[in-house]
Write a protein that binds this DNA or RNA. Structure first.
Lengths: 112, 112
DNA sequence: TTTCGCAATATCAAATGTGACATATTTTAT
DNA sequence: ATAAAATATGTCACATTTGATATTGCGAAA
């Protein structure tokens, strides 16, 4: 169970301790991944909500379809910087990003 | 005035349009910089609050004093990823980071 | 089935971020 | 004032992120 989750993370390129259990992830490391996943999730739901394809969003931010896909998958090879820039381009405000992190974002905004 | 601000940003390495005025910065670009500066500001105030030197914080996050300085200065050569990891290492929670962005962070937390 | 539009995955060279280090500048204490 | 500690700034080799491109998978018509 936890084992499987660890495997998924490693597979995606995240460093998960030595031979240590997934539980070996420091709380801060877990939170960091959480933050990334929440933000990338919002990118995905907002794009869909606006009826854009990955290709269209890619053009809007001067990137490529494959990078958008990786971003939405929360792959570690994409930066928070790019995710934040993308959200802003999608019309999401700083305050809304804050609400996402505090868990107070209007639910319909997280939905496709 | 705005001219001077533009110069400061360019000087730090931020792309500020062609020959365009600082006002040429798209709102999203301005917000992106705002977000970075708010987060880097919190790194600085939190480090001081805990009575750590840049050197000590650097060791704690496996980095160097010079990078901490650059991070606190909000220089574009440092990533949001590193800033967030640093805040988490300083004990700041995801929720607190959210509150920073919504403008609802307890004032004493932003203070040195 | 086949075709079509979209998304996922892999690879790669170029661009950007990185820690380390050296050195300058500022701040603090005596 | 001046020495010491902390911070700022510049450079560089190395690592990671990037857009581009190609390819594959996948579901929805036809």
């Amino acid at each position: 169970m936890e084992q499987h989750r660890k495997a998924k993370l490693e597979e995606k390129g995240f460093r998960v301790g030595t031979a240590a259990e997934f539980l070996g992830l420091k709380p801060e490391e877990e939170t960091y991944i959480e933050i990334r996943l929440e933000i990338s999730g919002l990118v995905k739901s907002q794009r869909k909500k606006r009826g854009l394809t990955q290709q269209q969003l890619a053009r809007a931010i001067g990137s490529s379809q494959s990078r958008v896909a990786k971003m939405e998958a929360g792959e570690p090879s994409t930066s928070l910087d790019l995710m934040i820039k993308t959200l802003l381009r999608l019309g999401i405000s700083k305050k809304q990003i804050g609400n996402l992190l505090t868990g107070k974002l209007k639910p319909d905004l997280e939905t496709a």
